[in-house]
């Protein structure tokens, strides 16, 4: 049996909405931001979460980072359940799971020198001597491709791409095993993106890192990830190898999403699957299959019965009545 680094089982996160006014909290409406999400991730591999705004990918990432508490479900990390961990086990978990966010301008404290930014998680932990700390920070900076003299400078002296390198160096300081990448290149200039994506891949190989990558750019996700999970209104609708998902998407939503990709070439203006309507509110998702209101292949059954995730012959899973057992 494969030992997975990360196993998310039936993750659920509900948020109460509206100013309930304080006293009666029980009957308030709930947004089912994440509604039964399960996946497994092996060490040294990458999982991509894709979907449009409101699909729950960012909430899922925050659950993994323990920034939110789960409403239900479990997160296992190295075989240990961590979703309710507190105190020392929680700190140990957080040291092994780091995050790199979209905006390298706001995620770095402008008043701190780069060496202090990178060393901050280590200093907080307080287990390293000064000399050891300085050497490790210098090594981290060189690993992410920055000069040693960058250590003494402030974030505003760097370009967007370099700042993202600093953020990555900080993310690696505690030698994590899992890094959550939330839109790591979408705020960067086009000519810089490939640098950062290559760097992330090099670091993955070097440190045997696992990534959970969130990005709206499907090409970036397909390029970076081994497995892609497509989410729609809080649920995974399809999950499989990056290759199978991007070459032959099975779920109608995945098909539509990938066909909405911008063409790589001018003659690639391929036939697109046009979706009608807008993404429904996660506050009040449609009954049956959540996607039925926009699905081009909708059948009577889709409006009432929610399709279960079923395994297809090539090993991927998808939740659609068209694909399931008849």
């Amino acid at each position: 049996m494969t030992q997975y680094l990360l196993e998310a089982d039936n993750l659920v996160k509900h948020f109460p909405v509206g100013r309930g006014g304080g006293f009666r909290q029980t009957n308030r409406p709930m947004i089912k931001a994440v509604d039964g999400v399960s996946f497994k991730l092996e060490a040294g591999t990458s999982l991509g979460l894709v979907g449009e705004s409101g699909c729950g990918k960012t909430t899922t990432a925050r659950l993994l980072l323990r920034l939110y508490d789960v409403t239900a479900g479990s997160i296992r990390f190295g075989g240990e359940e961590v979703q309710n961990a507190t105190g020392k086990p929680l700190r140990a978990y957080r040291n092994q799971v780091q995050a790199v966010f979209q905006d390298p301008y706001s995620s770095l404290n402008p008043r701190m020198r780069v060496r202090d930014i990178v060393a901050e998680p280590l200093v907080a932990q307080g287990q390293m001597g000064r000399k050891e700390l300085r050497d490790w920070v210098n090594e981290l900076l060189s690993v992410v491709g920055l000069d040693a003299n960058a250590a003494h400078r402030f974030p505003h002296e760097f370009s967007g791409g370099q700042r993202q390198r600093i953020a990555i160096a900080r993310g690696l300081a505690l030698r994590p095993r899992l890094v959550i990448l939330d839109e790591p290149v979408s705020a960067l200039d086009v000519s810089i993106r490939a640098q950062i994506l290559n760097l992330l891949q090099d670091l993955q190989d070097k440190f045997n890192l696992s990534y959970v990558l969130i990005a709206h750019d499907l090409d970036v996700v397909a390029h970076m990830c081994d497995v892609i999970a497509v989410m729609y209104l809080g649920k995974i609708v399809e999950m499989g190898t990056a290759d199978s998902i991007s070459r032959a998407p099975a779920h109608p939503y995945t098909q539509a999403l990938f066909s909405a990709r911008l063409p790589a070439r001018p003659d690639g203006r391929a036939a697109r699957i046009k979706l009608s309507g807008e993404i429904p509110s996660p506050l009040n998702p449609p009954p049956g299959c959540h996607f039925h209101t926009r699905c081009p292949h909708v059948m009577a059954r889709c409006r009432s019965a929610q399709p279960p995730l079923t395994t297809l012959p090539d090993g991927r899973i998808a939740a659609c009545h068209l694909l399931g057992p008849a």
Partner: peptide, 11 residues
């Protein structure tokens, strides 16, 4: 620039 853009159809 053209060469630096990832393409999901050419993994």
């Amino acid at each position: 620039l053209l060469a630096s853009i990832p393409d999901a159809t050419e993994l």
